[in-house]
Design a protein around this nucleic acid. Sequence first.
DNA 1: CCCATTTTGGACTAGCAAGTCCAGAACATT
DNA 2: AATGTTCTGGACTTGCTAGTCCAAAATGGG
Lengths: 194, 194
Amino acid sequence: MKLTPKGQATRQRIIVGTAEYLRGNDAGAVTLDDIRAVTSTSKGQLFHYFPDGKEELLLAVAQHEADRVLIDQEPYLSRLDTWESWQAWRDALLARYRAQGRLCPLGALMDQVSSTPGAADVVSELLGQWQQRVRSGVLTMQGDGLVSADVDADRVAGAFVAGIQGGVQVLRATGSTDQLTSMLDLLIDYLRRA
Amino acid sequence: MKLTPKGQATRQRIIVGTAEYLRGNDAGAVTLDDIRAVTSTSKGQLFHYFPDGKEELLLAVAQHEADRVLIDQEPYLSRLDTWESWQAWRDALLARYRAQGRLCPLGALMDQVSSTPGAADVVSELLGQWQQRVRSGVLTMQGDGLVSADVDADRVAGAFVAGIQGGVQVLRATGSTDQLTSMLDLLIDYLRRA
DNA sequence: CCCATTTTGGACTAGCAAGTCCAGAACATT
DNA sequence: AATGTTCTGGACTTGCTAGTCCAAAATGGG
């Protein structure tokens, strides 16, 4: 399928508009008509740009959201080289999720995982990269002698990723950020002592 | 609504049958006809026992599954009083989730949270109780002098709950239990050092 | 045994939502 | 300007699914 610049723009408008919409609505309940309304498009356009229909469209949206997750944290993930920077990352995460409340784009994404096979890949990819970024932060700290060398950086990074996931999950269910906070503080504390 | 023993039995059959079915299938895609088929019932029965229809039925199933989560761990949660018992709990959790693979009853439950308001309560209740149980385990350890008294039991318990959630979430998405394992080991390690 | 109540089966309805189709407008290329 | 391609709109089809309805069977109390 060849896309002119105009086509590209429309396709993008659909993805971004849907993503925005899903950030405030139940992903499982979206209909193509909702998407049509919110992106000012017609059925024809939807199927023109996403021939495989809803599934393909939502997958593209999922990919878009997954990209955003790391981009949002980029400034912090790149500089995990002092205790202050870890703390700043922690604060940024908490602020972000507190503001977001119960509605989590990645969470909605994960919900779809069970149904469509492609979504699992998108999430796996994201989690893998995330873990890598944290891992290299830990390694940097070890290089500078701030963290004991006998800590397994990969395991700690895995724990971070899982912990954040879980904290957000709890937030979505209960509306409380307590567990997420506990988790982050405990993990950083763990690193500090090691 | 009055229920004779026979009625009770049917109602229960519906709940248990649906729960079992959902343990191996996408919760978001279940239809009443699926439920009918798997529980050998008629539409009339479904709406006789769950007048508010699908939502009420699934909520009852969710409650049933939530109960199971703690019951399954009961033997371990009650005896978190030695390091060996914590390890045993860890092993049991890992074994369970490894066996379960990507299909998680609680996870499917959480998926529904966003849509139906009642489901959030069910999950909140479960998470709260779970955290309480872990908390009292930590307190026991502190009472026996095995864990430093200046650890905040509630925070650690919250981290455990969040961590397990996250680990399972990662398992669902990627199929790997590595992060769950890291998480549990790190948390126990944290307690040991404190 | 009789009557009220509960339980059961399944045909039927209503509405929604994904996907199809095609005609015409806009656009690019020569 | 001519012609082929891409883009857009929206009516239409198709299939599915939650929920309704009612009649008949089972059950239980007196």
